[in-house]
Structures are given as C-alpha cells and as structure tokens.
Nucleic acid binder design. Structure first.
Lengths: 150, 150
DNA sequence: GTATATAGGTGTAAACTGCACATAGATATG
DNA sequence: CATATCTATGTGCAGTTTACACCTATATAC
C-alpha cells in the first residue's frame, strides 16, 4: 500500500463537506460559470467541447448534466447566446458565444476571485505559522487567552 | 453616482450564482470548516468568538445559525471536541478544541486549497491574455477552430 | 443490424446556506 | 422590580447548487 492511500484511509469520514475537501470541495460555487465564460471569450464553442476544456480548471470528471444545465441557465441570464449548428456530419451542436453582459460578468467574477485569492493567502500565512501582517495585536491574545496554546 | 455603483447596476442579474459572484459566491463550499480548524489549532475557542475571527476570512457578516450548526456537525464528525464552560459570569460557553483527526483534516484541506490556488492561477493567466504554459499546443487551436476569435 | 462516438438533455435527492426567529443567563438602569 | 441590553447558543425553513443516474438521437464503422 502506498503512503498516499494510507493517508486517505486515516482521514475522518466527515459529513461536513461530503467526505473530504479534495476534488469538488475546494472550489467556489458556480466555478463552472467563469470557466465557461473565459473559454467562450476566446472561441465560440459547444457543450461537448467545453466539457473537455473545463477539465483543465479543476474538474477531473465533468458530468454532462451539470454542464448542459448551466449553459441553458446562462443563456436565460443573457450572458451567453446559442444557435444550432447542423451543417456538419454527426449530431447537431448548440454553438455558444459570449454576450456583452457576459463579458461584464466575467470581469466581475475576476474581481471576486482576486479578492478570494487574497483571503486564501491570509489562510496560508496563518497555516504555515506566520502571524497576520494586518493584525496589529489589539489585545487579541488576552481576549482569547483562556484556551491553551499548542 | 460613483463609478462603482454604475458598474453594479449594469451587471446582469444572473440566476446562476444567485445574483453576482461578489461576497459569498467566490469561496468554496464549507470554507468555514478549514477556517474554524485553523483558528482552533492555535487557541481553543467558542462559537461567539469564532464568529468574530472568521470575519477575517471572507465572511463579512457571519450568520450565527450556520456557524453553530457547522460546529455541531464537526463535532459529530470527530474533528473537534467541546465541553461547557460555566465557571464565569454570563451565559455558558461551549468551548471547542481540535482533535487529531481534525489536524489531519486541516492538512488535507490545505492540500486541496493549494491545488485550487494553482487552478486559479491558470485561470488568471488565461484571463489576462497569456497562453497556458502547460499547454503544449497539441492541435487544440485547429480542433476549436470553428469559433471566431475576438 | 448493431456497436460506438458524438451531442444534448431530464429527474431527483442530497447537501449547503441565508434568513428569520427562539431561548436563556448576567448585568445595568430608572 | 421591570425591562433593556449584551453575551451566547441554537432551530426551522426555503432556496440554490450539485452529483448521480438515466434517457434520446445522429452518424459512422464493422
């Protein structure tokens, strides 16, 4: 048995977050939306192709149901547009393109993700043991002093 | 009217992701769990205090319901322990401490978040217009070539 | 004719979260 | 004493998101 497998078996089976934070847990809700918008900003595309492309953005095994449903919802919201492409062998494709509102929405997502990245940086600074740089020590240690330190 | 306010009104009211990705949207599900575990790793604490501390990790206005419920669930999962602290003026506090399983779980979350950070880096590299460095151009442009470029 | 790859989709249950609301001890104030 | 406030912990419910299973249809290969 490899070490990684052993680690996994020691991991508590937590109901919070399903089982473990790997895979789907450690990414924001609707992460699929900015990923799709970003893909469509460069090239128009369709569901089946977007499924493969999103694999590069943390979706190890994208499930079709969620993707197609998200695309239809995004069209209702006006951030993407679609039209059938039938001039081709094989099943018809619903080709999607991003709208102006979609571009605006993508920019907004980018700003939010930047903010979240900074928050995660704070998390990792604290995780690796360094004190918070923005924390000016306004008596916090004393207030929380009833706990033992490890 | 300020520019920021104007931007906000131009934003499409998207059903995907509630309204907009600001605030709660741009962070993973159960983000509260690693935040609590990290806080408890340094000092034992209780719900009311943890509520204030989590404000520093992207929760602008933490709602008590979610926090207390999460803490109870985490205890059921065995990643934290609690005991009543009554030797004090004021209402009793349920003091929490992290368990060994909780430490393991925190490490696991950290690994997942690191992974996700790398994914977000990929997102931002693509967003700002640079090509993916891991992308060795295996005919991808031609395969996706039916879309127009912007 | 039947298997396979491509392409798009629905139904449902579980999980997560925000919001409103409920409870209760201690202390301060008129 | 009445009651207001701060501290502290919770429950109920409804809305959103998502994973999983399942279904349909077209074209091509064998």
């Amino acid at each position: 048995m490899s070490n990684e497998e052993k680690d996994r078996e020691d991991l508590p089976k937590c109901r919070v977050g399903g089982k473990d934070p790997s895979g789907s847990e450690a990414r924001p809700r609707n992460w699929l939306v900015p990923v799709i918008l970003l893909s469509l900003r460069d090239w128009n595309s369709y569901g089946y192709e977007l499924m493969e492309r999103s694999t590069r953005f943390g979706f190890d095994a994208m499930n079709p149901g969620t993707l197609y449903r998200t695309l239809r919802q995004m069209e209702k919201d006006g951030i993407v547009e679609s039209s059938w492409e039938t001039s081709r062998g094989g099943p018809a494709r619903r080709m999607y393109s991003i709208t102006d509102a979609g571009m605006t929405y993508l920019d907004f997502w980018a700003k939010s993700l930047e903010q979240y990245q900074r928050t995660m940086d704070t998390f990792f600074r604290m995780y690796t043991g360094q004190p918070l740089p923005s924390d000016e020590n306004e008596e916090n240690e004393k207030e929380s002093g009833e706990g033992n330190s490890r």
